[in-house]
């Protein structure tokens, strides 16, 4: 009895250590994949073993979205819709219908400042912003015409048949502003199905952090400084969040001292002025993307009012590099010194 008593602690240890080791085994090391899809750079890191199958699944989903929503690809669904939906209703896959309906809802939510039917305006400005040779600033009449085409009311969704049609010739859908956030949401769904505990999804600057951070209290997401290299600050995020930034520094061209960028105001038809960067912090990627685009177009006063009224978390940077916060953003933000 005495002998057993003496050695019992060691026996218990011998039982507990393999158990604890097994528990610890479930703390996986990160695996990262980097590639291109949806006309942008992707970086996916998951804390899951084995990770390759999940990474491939997410990447393939991104490529699927690209094959549906790339409006410059003649084989894509959206190209076909934009080309033919006025003449006859076009059948669309359920992903397309889903994103279209969510986008129209978000367009209403943002009072039209986010607009999935902004294609005609985008096409008008695209040569300028890309800096193509011989491109000239679009004529005001053309802009007015494009604004009238860029209305979500011109889209008719026939839900039972899964078809979409346009009421006027020239309507054109463009999900460029939200497809990355939508892709992040779908990636989160895959992570959930596969039982992944934590991951970071970077879809061309729209960043989703999933689950709790590994061995620390916060995920740390840097926010690009709008006018120089490096970051303006860091967001400390405790759990699943998507951060989306709209900035005028990404795709732009300077003509006659004026910056023409890709974030268009759907009401004036011109690139939105006043703000240089809007970052939205939300659980939902599609929402973050749509709202950051909308608030950028709204400008400071209207944007702040909108965000405060809807109690959303955002960081707005104006052209004089003043930083404005709404909601929880100030608490999460840590300026870079």
């Amino acid at each position: 009895m005495r002998r057993v008593f003496k050695y019992l602690p060691l026996i218990i240890l011998a039982l507990v250590i393999p158990f604890a080791y097994w528990v610890n085994k479930t703390e996986p090391r990160p695996e990262t994949i980097r590639d291109f899809a949806m006309d942008t750079y992707l970086e996916i890191t998951i804390y899951h073993q084995p990770g390759e199958a999940v990474l491939e699944e997410i990447l393939n989903d991104f490529k699927l979205l690209e094959s549906i929503f790339n409006r410059y690809d003649e084989n894509s669904v959206i190209y076909n819709v934009n080309k033919n939906a006025f003449e006859k209703p076009v059948s669309i896959p359920s992903i397309f219908e889903n994103l279209l309906q969510e986008s129209i809802k978000l367009s209403g939510y943002t009072e039209g400042y986010f607009n999935p039917a902004i294609g005609p305006l985008v096409d008008l400005w695209r040569p300028i912003i890309k800096g193509e040779e011989d491109s000239v600033l679009p004529d005001i009449d053309l802009i007015k015409k494009a604004i009238s085409l860029s209305k979500t009311e011109n889209i008719i969704i026939n839900e039972p048949d899964g078809q979409v049609s346009f009421t006027i010739l020239g309507v054109s859908l463009d999900f460029g502003a939200v497809v990355k956030g939508y892709a992040v949401d779908r990636a989160f769904g895959i992570l959930r199905n596969r039982g992944v505990d934590r991951a970071v999804i970077n879809a061309g600057g729209t960043i989703g952090v999933y689950g709790s951070p590994p061995g620390r209290n916060y995920w740390r997401i840097g926010i690009q400084h709008p006018r120089k290299d490096g970051i303006i600050g860091v967001l400390n995020l405790p759990s699943t969040t998507v951060v989306s930034t709209s900035g005028d520094y990404e795709r732009y061209n300077i003509i006659g001292g004026k910056r023409y960028h890709h974030l268009l105001n759907p009401f004036t038809g011109y690139p939105a002025e006043e703000l240089v960067s809007v970052t939205i912090i939300n659980k939902n990627g599609l929402f973050s993307d749509a709202v950051s685009t909308a608030v950028f177009a709204m400008g400071l006063e209207k944007g702040m009012e909108f965000l405060t009224q809807k109690s959303l978390s955002a960081i707005i940077i104006t052209s004089d590099l003043q930083i404005h916060f709404t909601g929880e953003a100030e608490r999460l933000f840590q300026p870079e010194l």
Binding site: Y41, G205, T206, W219, V243
Partner: peptide, 24 residues
Amino acid sequence: TIVCLPNRIIIYYRGGAQIDGLTH
């Protein structure tokens, strides 16, 4: 990172990561 889409080239640092991602 330096990312060149047409060339399919990605250039990034290994080690030293202080943050998890960069939003832009």
